[in-house]
């Protein structure tokens, strides 16, 4: 594990999360996130090699519903929530890149 969190790493994370940080914010967040991560390294005092990861405390499996159509929302209600609508569709400014 790398030691100190860098400004570049925080800047990259902000881009991934679609957040824009000022230089001052970048400075503060780098320090604060660094502190939290340093605390998290406590976990490395244990040998966890053979421990299984638990993503979820819920032990039930195979939760499914039957393939039955239920009513959809009223379109006008949904579109009324949207910031910008054209021709019953959600309008967005130009998309610069293709989806992965």
């Amino acid at each position: 594990m790398s030691d100190a969190l860098t400004r570049d790493e925080v800047a990259k994370v902000a881009r991934l999360a679609r957040l824009v940080l000022s230089d001052a914010e970048l400075e503060v967040y780098t320090e604060q996130l660094g502190q939290i991560l340093e605390h998290a390294r406590d976990m490395n005092t244990l040998d966890l090699t053979d421990v299984v990861a638990t993503a979820h405390p819920f032990g039930v499996t195979n939760v499914v519903r039957e393939d039955v159509v239920t009513p959809s929302l009223d379109r006008e209600t949904v579109l009324a929530m949207a910031p910008h609508v054209v021709d019953h569709r959600f309008a967005v400014p130009r998309i610069l890149g293709e989806a992965p």
Partner: peptide, 25 residues
């Protein structure tokens, strides 16, 4: 008949944004 995670109709060619619910939206 319905979508993968909700009960909206899985139907090609419907009017735009008519087969949507809180889950798939």
């Amino acid at each position: 008949k319905s979508k993968l995670f909700c009960g909206c109709a899985n139907h090609f060619g419907a009017e735009p944004n008519t087969n949507i619910c809180p889950v798939c939206l």
